Each structure stands twice: as C-alpha cells, then as structure tokens.
Amino acid sequence: MCGRFAITLPPEAMAQLFEAVPGNDLPVVPNYNVCPTNQVHGVVSAEGRHRLTAMRWGFLPHWYKTTGDGPLLINARAETIAEKPAFRTAARERRCLIPASGFYEWTKDGDGNRLPWYIHRTDGAPIAFAGVWQDWERDGTQLTTCAIVTTGANGTMSRIHHRMPVVLAPGDWAKWLGEEGRGAAALMVAAPEEALTMHRVDPAVNSNRASGERLIAPVEA
C-alpha cells in the first residue's frame, strides 16, 4: 500500500516537469509528511492540456453522503480497480498522475516497534504515482478527490512490504492519462527493481504531526 509520502518539488517545477498549467490553490510544499485526507498535487489531462491541480487524498465515491460515510479509500488495488464499483469508472475515464519525491513504508522489530523506511527513485528524479480521481459534492461542499494505484511489490520492496504504489516512467505518463489510446491497464505493474532504493529513517515520522526535512534523513538500520 501507500499511506504516507513526501513532496518537495516546487509547484513551478512540477508544472514544468509535467508540462501542466498550475492551479492557484495548490498545496504548500515542501511537505515531508503527506498524510491521508491532506491536499495533494494531481496532474490531469483536460481539453488538450495538462493541468496541475489540488486534490484530497482519499477518494470519495459519488454515493458517500459525507466524507466519512465509508472506508477511507487512499489506495486502489491494480488487480481489482476495473471491477470495484468505487473505482471502475474512474479507472476508465479519470486517471491522474500524483507527484512525489518519495514514500514511506514500515517494518517491525522483535518488540513490535514500527520502523519507517523512505523509498525514492535511485536516480533522484521525482516520482509520478498512477492515480484515479473523482469530483464529489454534497450540501454545497465540492471536493476533487484521488487514490493512488497499488500493485504487488517488486524484489526491492518485497524486503519490507508485499505491496507498493504504481510508479510510472515518464514515457508512460501520456498513456496513463489517456492521451495515447488504450493500454493503461498494462502499466499497473511494479517498477523495475533497480528503479527504487530505500533507507531507514527516524521513527519521528510515525507521527502524522511530524514535519521537516529530517524525516527523510537516513539513520542507521
């Protein structure tokens, strides 16, 4: 799964990287501890151009009467996304890229303590998660919401967890966004093992209130 990540790239750099028109309500960066229900950056393809826009991380199906009306859908499993009522239309029609600098996963030691790891691209480049999005409205509240697509872990990630987010290579961004015809389903696979690396980080990130660059600094494993 993916339950926490970091984004340090300035909005203008994200806009340049994804050739996108930035919105005027984008989340503040850097954020080294992006948590579920936070606002995140999403790249969508609309009217022949890319748009960089704010989205709530936590997909809200149209039948939810409130934001807490059902499970918090921060991830969508690649294996079932085309079948699940919450995601199947979005998987066909509303796919997005979710920029990140890296993401966190946890293992446990012999005493049950949660040990955080920070995972990022080996080449240091930004990550683009595969995502799906949905507009939701109730009683005058309007939200654009999203979920990150996950798949089975590659060999690197499997050392610490059995699942991982779908990390898209730049050459696949257009296809995921629906700009190059069919074939997006084939992209929902694990990134090559050599694409990602990881290191242990301080347990301070276990708190969703923690912040700052120290959260991604390596510590001795």
Rank of each mutant, 00 (worst) to 15 (best):
C2A: 06
C2S: 05
G3T: 00
A6I: 09
L9V: 07
P10L: 02
A13H: 15
A15L: 10
L17E: 14
F18W: 02
E19L: 12
A20L: 01
V28L: 10
V28H: 07
V29K: 10
P30G: 06
C35E: 15
P36N: 03
T37A: 03
N38V: 07
V43G: 03
A46M: 15
H50Q: 12
H50E: 11
R51K: 14
L52A: 09
A54G: 02
M55V: 00
W57Y: 01
H62P: 00
H62G: 12
Y64T: 11
T67Y: 10
G68K: 10
G70E: 11
G70M: 11
G70F: 08
P71E: 05
I81K: 10
A82N: 15
E83R: 13
K84N: 13
K84W: 12
P85E: 08
A86H: 10
A86S: 14
A90E: 06
A91R: 14
C96T: 03
P99K: 07
A100G: 07
S101N: 04
G102R: 07
G102E: 07
F103K: 09
Y104A: 09
E105G: 08
W106H: 11
G112E: 03
R114D: 13
Y118P: 04
I119Q: 01
T122D: 13
T122L: 13
D123P: 00
A128Y: 04
A130Q: 05
E137T: 01
E137V: 04
R138T: 08
R138M: 08
D139C: 06
G140A: 01
Q142I: 14
L143M: 01
T150F: 08
A153H: 03
T156S: 13
R163G: 02
P165T: 03
V166N: 12
V167N: 04
P170R: 06
G171T: 13
D172E: 14
W173T: 07
K175D: 10
K175V: 10
K175Y: 11
W176M: 02
L177N: 01
R182D: 15
G183R: 00
M188S: 10
V189Q: 15
A190I: 01
A190S: 06
A191R: 02
E194V: 12
E194C: 12
A195G: 11
A195D: 15
T197L: 11
H199P: 08
H199S: 04
N206S: 06
N208G: 15
N208P: 15
R214S: 15
A217T: 07
P218N: 08
V219A: 00
E220C: 12
A221H: 12
